[in-house]
């Protein structure tokens, strides 16, 4: 459990997934990837990928929780699934914007 902050980088302990926090609420969150906690150095050597959380992450995609208060960006893809207290994060719909520069 931890309070996440914007710009914070976290790694999965069970796959290659890495994320960056875009927005986070001021509350303790249990962010996991592949069923294991995400940490700043990805050090979680005693656990392995939970097959129930193995749908994978996609680079450049944004993931949000149910109330939309947490938004994270996948900066390195992996096999695990992102979740908060067991609830899977959802892919955020991207709104297509015109190119500006």
């Amino acid at each position: 459990m931890a309070i996440l902050s914007t710009g914070q980088r976290l790694k999965s302990g069970v796959c290659t997934t890495e994320i960056m926090v875009i927005t986070a609420p001021q509350e303790d969150l249990d962010l996991t990837c592949g069923g294991a906690p995400m940490t700043s150095n990805g050090d979680e050597s005693n656990v392995s990928l939970d097959p129930a959380f193995a749908e994978g992450t996609t680079i450049g995609k944004r993931y949000v929780n149910a109330d939309g208060k947490l938004e994270i960006l996948c900066v390195k893809p992996g096999q695990g699934t992102l979740a908060i207290s067991g609830d899977r994060l959802k892919l955020k719909d991207s709104k297509k914007l015109p190119k500006t520069d």
Binding site: G7, G60, L73, L97, K99, T100
Partner: peptide, 23 residues
């Protein structure tokens, strides 16, 4: 870094261009 990063993440979709696009 956070200003520029916010701008890019807020306005550009990752990998949205195909290989033959050029600006």
């Amino acid at each position: 870094q956070r200003h520029l990063c916010s701008y890019i993440l807020g306005s550009v979709e990752f990998m949205s261009a195909t290989e033959d696009e050029a600006t």
